[in-house]
């Protein structure tokens, strides 16, 4: 069949708009990356990745303590919130009829919408005020409240992709519901779940606000969870507003590192899909 010129024009116009939109998403990404690389590359050195800061005035030193601090607190928060989040997601998807599920859903929706700085203040009141000290725990707690609703919603959405008749087939084999959920539903969505969890963690690793008044930040390596701990975002913030050129350069390098970590997490999340599964996931979703 031949397309009329009018149809052809509309098709072209639409394609053009779609391409324009896609490019406008890409441009900021490339610009940010380029910018960070330019500004930060001068401070990127082995020293930067291996050492803690030198005293003011001395050149050199790095953010290794902040990288370790970020990994520690993000890791801790993931340990807390990922299991709880997955369980809540399972509950929302598999037991959605009940009243409790409705309340849980409402709570999760609200949690998702709370600005991260408010979560920081909340954690400050609970931990910092009562224990009279900034601490890594307080930071990890704040981050876990940020991760929790994301993991819950992602889990729920992913499990809903498994058709109902698959669950029925499991039950029809004489399997109790919990075995169907564990061995058929969760197992069948394992890869998508891992992806979802990694993306949630990656989101949390860039948060600054909730760490400002909880973990506070520090200039040294610390292995005590009850004391202040440095993190990349807070370190970047502190250095960026400092008057010293060397620190500002390091802030750029820190930002670059942070982006690399997030990018690495995102890419590893994607890799959990083999190509075939990736296709299936998107086909099923659409």
């Amino acid at each position: 069949m031949k397309l009329s010129p009018q149809r052809k024009f509309k098709n072209l116009l639409f394609k053009f708009l779609l391409t324009l939109a896609s490019v406008s998403v890409l441009i900021p990404l490339i610009l940010i990356f380029n910018f960070l690389l330019q500004k930060g590359s001068m401070a990127l050195s082995l020293d930067f990745f291996l050492n803690e800061p030198k005293p003011v005035g001395e050149l050199g030193g790095g953010m290794a303590h902040a990288i370790v601090g970020s990994l520690t607190m993000v890791g801790l928060s993931a340990l807390i919130s990922v299991p709880i989040g997955i369980l809540c997601g399972v509950f929302l998807s598999e037991y959605r009829q009940g009243k409790i599920a409705a309340i849980l859903k409402f709570t999760i929706d609200i949690l998702t919408g709370i600005p991260s700085i408010v979560i920081g203040i909340f954690s400050y009141l609970i931990f910092v005020v009562t224990m009279k000290s900034f601490s890594a725990w307080a930071g990890a707690f704040a981050l876990s409240i940020i991760i929790l609703p994301i993991v819950t919603r992602t889990t729920e959405e992913i499990l809903k992709l498994i058709p109902k008749h698959v669950r029925e087939a499991g039950l029809a084999l004489g399997l109790p519901k919990w075995k169907v959920i564990l061995h058929i539903v969760l197992k069948g969505s394992k890869n998508s779940l891992i992806t979802g969890v990694i993306l949630a963690i990656s989101r949390a690793s860039g948060e600054t606000a909730p760490l400002l008044f909880t973990a506070f930040g520090s200039m040294y390596f610390s292995d005590k969870l009850t004391e202040p701990m440095a993190s990349l975002p807070v370190q970047i913030y502190n250095y960026a507003i400092s008057p010293y050129d060397d620190w500002q350069r390091q802030a750029w390098a820190g930002a670059f590192t942070l982006i690399l970590i997030c990018l690495g997490l995102n890419i590893s999340a994607r890799l959990f899909f083999k190509r075939k599964e990736l296709k299936k996931f998107f086909v099923r979703k659409s």
Binding site: I162, P163, V166, G170, A172, I184, K187, G188, S189, N191
Partner: peptide, 13 residues
């Protein structure tokens, strides 16, 4: 036991 109207093999298995 039951065989359903629509084929429903378990995914990723």
């Amino acid at each position: 036991g039951m065989v359903f109207q629509k084929p429903n093999p378990f995914p990723a298995m």
